[in-house]
Simulated assay, not measured.
Amino acid sequence: MTTDGVTGTQAAILAAYAELIEEVGTDDVSFRLIALRAGVGERTVFRHYPTRVDLLLAMSAWVERTVFARPPSESIFDVPIAIREAIETYDKRPELAYVVAETAMRGVNGSEPAPQRAHLEALLEREAPSLDADERRQIVAALCHLDSSATWVTMRRELGMSGRNIADAATWAAEAILDPIRDLGSH
C-alpha cells in the first residue's frame, strides 16, 4: 500500500486515467488505453475497477488526496492564503478539478466533503477559545468549503469568473469571516 491508501498498481492506473482525462476528456478514455498508459494489462484495470463508474470515483478521490492535497494551515489566520493556493491549483488542472467537483457534488467519490474541518476546528479552539461551539461551527462551515473544487467550478461556470477572480473572491470571503475574531485570542 502507498501512503494514500492504494497499491502501486492502483496508483499507476489512477494516475494514467487522470493524465488521459486531461489530454482527451472523460468520454474518450478506454480501459485499454488506461492499461497501456499505466503499463499493466487490461484485465488488471478491470480487476481493480470493474466498471467505468468505479474507476471514475476512485480516480476522483485519489486526485483529491494527491494532486489537490495541501498541507494544513498552522494558524486559522493563514487559511485565506491556503484557499488562494487551492484555487490556483484547480485553475492549473481544470479538467481534473471539474471531474473531482462533479463527483464530490454528487457525494459519491468517497473523499471527505470537508477534509480540513477537524483541523480548522482545532485551530479555532486554540486561537479563539472564547468562541462558543455554534460560532466555531459556523466559521468552520464557511471556511472549509471556500477552497473546494465544487466552489471553483461553480464560480467558473455560473459566474464566468477567471481563476484569479475566484481566488480573490474566496480569499476576500475568508478574510471577512476571520476579521471579527482576529483579536479574540490575544485577550
Rank of each mutant, 00 (worst) to 15 (best):
T7R: 07
S60D: 04
E22T: 12
L120G: 04
T66W: 00
R65A: 15
E112C: 06
T89K: 14
V153N: 04
R106C: 04
Q10G: 15
A141N: 15
D132C: 07
R156A: 05
I13N: 09
Q116H: 14
V40A: 06
I21T: 02
G110P: 09
E23M: 10
Y98F: 15
T66N: 10
V53M: 03
I13H: 09
A58D: 07
D183S: 08
R136N: 07
P50E: 11
L14R: 01
T51Q: 11
R65F: 00
L55S: 06
A104H: 00
L131R: 05
V79C: 05
R84L: 02
S186R: 13
A141K: 12
M105G: 15
R117D: 13
R137Q: 14
A150Q: 09
V79M: 03
P180Q: 06
T51M: 04
A167F: 08
D134C: 09
E158T: 14
Y49C: 05
G25W: 10
L159Q: 12
S60C: 03
R65Q: 11
V53Y: 00
R164Q: 13
A86G: 05
V40C: 08
D147G: 15
M1I: 15
D183E: 01
I76A: 03
A11K: 12
P180A: 00
A128M: 09
D147T: 09
I76Q: 01
A118P: 04
V53N: 00
A18W: 06
A69W: 12
P71V: 10
N109E: 08
E125H: 14
V99N: 01
D27M: 10
